[in-house]
Amino acid sequence: MNWSPEQLELAENYQSLDEIPPEERRYKCHTCHLVVDENPCPNCGETSLEIMCPLDHCDCHHSIIESIEYCPLCGHAVCPECGSHDVMQISRVTGYLQDVAGWNAGKQQELKDRVRYSVV
């Protein structure tokens, strides 16, 4: 992903999403699937909202991509084509495909550290 200078500046200003001042935060509501500016959600009243990374744009139209990249601000997986954070990363574990969102932090870091090779 080729992050713009403005996006990289945001990543340098904050070390984590919790450091973003409340007045600058945007939230993802997974109940009504909206991006809102306040917590709780003004549309459905949901109180368990996820702080949205300022580098996320929530609009990925890519279906399957072989590689994955990670956000320099929040560390979540992003689409290497467009930078959207709304991706599902799957891995083959002992013959089964599985969503890695349920993995513990150590196993997710191991996945990030893997070296991938391509046979030419």
Rank of each mutant, 00 (worst) to 15 (best):
Q109K: 14
W103P: 01
Q7A: 05
P54A: 05
C32Y: 01
E66Y: 10
V100G: 01
P42C: 04
P80N: 08
C44S: 12
H62L: 06
T31R: 11
A105W: 07
V93Y: 00
C44D: 12
E19Q: 13
N39L: 00
T31V: 04
R92C: 04
H85R: 08
E12A: 03
I65E: 14
G95C: 03
K28E: 04
D113V: 11
L8M: 11
L97D: 11
T31S: 09
G83M: 09
V87M: 15
C53L: 10
C74R: 15
L17Q: 15
S84D: 10
E19P: 01
P54F: 00
E6Q: 10
N39D: 03
A77N: 12
Y117E: 14
A77Y: 12
E50H: 13
Y27W: 08
T31G: 05
Y96R: 06
V78K: 14
N2K: 09
V115S: 15
C71R: 12
D37Q: 08
N13A: 11
V35P: 06
E23P: 03
Y14G: 11
L10S: 06
H76T: 12
V35G: 00
L73S: 12
S63R: 10
C74Y: 09
P5S: 04
Q108F: 12
R114E: 04
Y96E: 01
I20D: 13
P21F: 03
T31N: 13
A101M: 09
E110L: 07
S4W: 03
Q89D: 01
Q108V: 05
E38A: 02
P54T: 06
P5E: 14
V115D: 14
W103Q: 03
H85E: 05
S91Q: 07
E9F: 01
E6M: 02
A11V: 07
Q98L: 05
H57M: 10
L10W: 07
S91P: 00
L8K: 07
G102K: 03
C53M: 06
W3N: 08
L73W: 13
Q108L: 15
E9R: 07
H33R: 12
E38S: 01
K28H: 04
L49N: 01
C44E: 09
N2I: 06
S91M: 01
W103R: 05
N43K: 11
L111R: 09
C44T: 07
E12V: 02
H62K: 07
I20K: 11
L8S: 04
Y70I: 06
S63V: 12
L97P: 04
K112W: 05
Q15N: 15
